[in-house]
Amino acid sequence: MNHDTYPNSYIRRILRETRTIAMVGASANWNRPSHFAMKYLQTKGYRVIPVNPGQAGKQILGETCYASLADIPESFDMVDVFRNSEAAGEVAEEAIRLKDAKGIRTLWMQLGVRNDAAAARAEAAGLQVVMNRCPKIEFGRLNAELSWGGFNSGIVTSKRRKLRAS
């Protein structure tokens, strides 16, 4: 996978097949970017499970927070990494270890987060990888909501959009 530009079809497929997201680095603080993303994705029908050792056992946006991916009792489709590029390496290792046990299909690193070595290992282990993107922004982009803010969605279509997003 070329990680500089992703085809719309690749991102669209990932966002469609994902139901549950483990968000590593989710913040309890409402004005942090991870909190923005978590809340938005919840309103779009995703279940988001926060992972943050400092908040373990507490609730964030109605969900119990866990200290690590391994502590999450349920399975989840995607790991969304709100950590820096270096720390993303360890998260990737954990996701690879838990891939089959938890049913993980996608490793997603946030806007500004890129770790090519970790991505290569995750891909070799059979995970789909997205780097340096935000699932909130990508969801909004592919469903014409980002366009409302005057942004270039890169989407050209003569088809009428279904009113229920995704």
Partner: peptide, 12 residues
């Protein structure tokens, strides 16, 4: 194509 279509898909 962009000058005709960018930003203006059919009204949903």
């Amino acid at each position: 194509t962009l000058q005709l279509h960018a930003g203006t898909p059919p009204d949903p």
